[in-house]
């Protein structure tokens, strides 16, 4: 993406999380939930929504309070804020969606330890206005959710022959059980990273070619 001015707009901050700086495919952060709970598309989406809530809430608070948080204790304060949002998400899910809570189990409280969330607070929200921090958080959380969903749907389709619990193939389909086991997570993530990087590379080459042609025409 060619940026003409050095100052990114709020829109740029929103978009960068989806592709250019995708937390999973580019920054390779948050791998624990990424590999652990993506054995079905539904789990992936619920985890993505919980992370979305925590990241957007934390970024909003951290950015709004950034002038009052003393630097030496900033990380502790971020962790307190994140942990509070995580517990709120945990109890809300337990009350509203007990079945999903059962599936995700220990990985919901572990959102606290998702380095992607703490990373956004330290690298972005603590240095930008509320508007930019919100845009950044929404973009990053959506990028994370998309990545979770990509992994979860591929693994569920191949591993169980279903998507969101609906059977896609006939009875003749023998599920690749390995895809919903841990090795399947690594395999799928590796392949998705490969595709992602390949597309990015092609795009760069294409843009370079176009620029060359334009230079030649002049």
């Amino acid at each position: 993406m060619a940026t003409h001015s050095n100052k990114p707009t709020a829109y740029d901050e929103l978009l960068k999380g989806l592709w250019r700086d995708n937390p999973v495919f580019v920054q390779v952060l948050g791998m624990c939930p990424m590999l652990a709970v993506t054995n079905s598309a539904f789990n992936a989406v619920v985890m993505g929504l919980a992370t979305f809530f925590v990241l957007v809430g934390s970024s909003l608070l951290v950015s709004a309070l950034r002038q009052w948080i003393p630097r030496p204790v900033r990380i502790s304060v971020y962790v307190i804020i994140i942990a509070t949002f995580v517990t709120v998400a945990d109890y809300t899910l337990l009350a509203l969606l007990p079945a999903a809570h059962k599936e995700l189990g220990a990985f919901l409280p572990l959102i606290v330890a998702n380095c992607m969330i703490l990373g956004r607070q330290e690298a972005f929200a603590s240095k930008h206005t509320v508007k930019f921090a919100l845009m950044d958080a929404i973009g990053m959380a959506s990028g994370f959710m998309l990545a979770l969903f990509a992994l979860g749907s591929v693994r569920e389709i191949l591993g169980e022959g279903k998507l969101f619990g609906l059977a896609l193939f006939g009875d003749h389909f023998e599920p690749w059980v390995i895809m919903i086991l841990p090795p399947g997570g690594f395999l799928t993530l590796g392949l998705l990273l490969l595709i992602f990087n390949w597309v990015t590379e092609r795009k760069r080459e294409f843009l370079a070619q176009v620029a060359e042609q334009q230079a030649g025409n002049r």
Partner: peptide
């Protein structure tokens, strides 16, 4: 520093109690 962390902890505690009782 102590005051900041205490206030943060106190507010966080209040929120946790609220969500616990609410659910």
């Amino acid at each position: 520093l102590v005051a900041t962390l205490s206030i943060a902890g106190f507010i966080s505690g209040l929120i946790l109690i609220t969500i616990y009782l609410a659910t």
